[in-house]
Amino acid sequence: MASSPRKPGFVPLTLLFALFLIFLYGPTLTIGILSFQGPNGGLTFPLNGVSLHWFRQLFEQQQVGDFGGSLLRSLLLGMSVMLCTTVFSLLAGLAYRRNFRGANCLFYLTLVSLILPSILISLGIGIMFDRLNLAPGWYSSAFGAHLTWTLPFGLLIMFAVFNRFNKAYEAAAIDMGATPWQAFRLVVLPLILPSLIGVGLFGFTLSYDEFARTLMTAGTFNTLPLEIYGMTTNVTTPVLYALGTLTTLFSFTLVLLALLGMHLVQRRRGAATTG
């Protein structure tokens, strides 16, 4: 890179980019540091000693409401949404490789689902369940509400994948006598696996962090974002930061694992083609 002369404007743009990264990560780092605040420390600097006090507080039920329960619900919900998003998007992506009636209509509705204000979905599903005399629950109404947010992302990713997909591989497999199922399982699926991991990651994290669409659809028991929101109004200790730090770390770990997974799949494929 150093061999060719820099374009004009390289330095100020690099500086801007670096500042943007600080802007992006700085606040998160700040609460990360503040969550190690000593037992007598407050919500801002200076640090009053260093301790794990607030992380311990987090797991004492009376302190911060139902942290454990809401975390468990969010994890279960996130995983179900991830599973359904991956499978449904893959199926829909496959469907859109052929023409079918209503294809355009469904595509535009899916886009609408993506850009409709979340509060509308939340309110709509909330009232609908109310009118149908169904009790809303995080596993039913909130689950559906989350899918309206994750599926459009999944479908768009699948579109991008299949637009770049070389059909020759599949055709070759069929020519060599593979059944359509074999061609899918042994040729198509391995090729698109990295993108599917991406869809799954999106499905999980978008659901795990979703607030607005859960607000009116979660029913009696809170998911984690609802619990955190509740805490912003009545908790005035760094325990809030400890919670933030934990969930952020958790999300970062997931992203890293997914990236690692994609990398491994790609490397294995590279090894398979050269070896």
């Binding site: 829909a92 469907a95 689902s113 509308l120 609908m128 899918l147």
Partner: peptide
């Protein structure tokens, strides 16, 4: 395709169209 697109269509119908109509 019709079968493959059914789950997506159902989610859109049940959790997008119906709720908006309800509103």
């Amino acid at each position: 395709s019709y079968l493959q697109v059914t789950p997506l269509a159902l989610v859109i119908l049940l959790f997008l169209l119906f709720p908006v109509l309800t509103i």
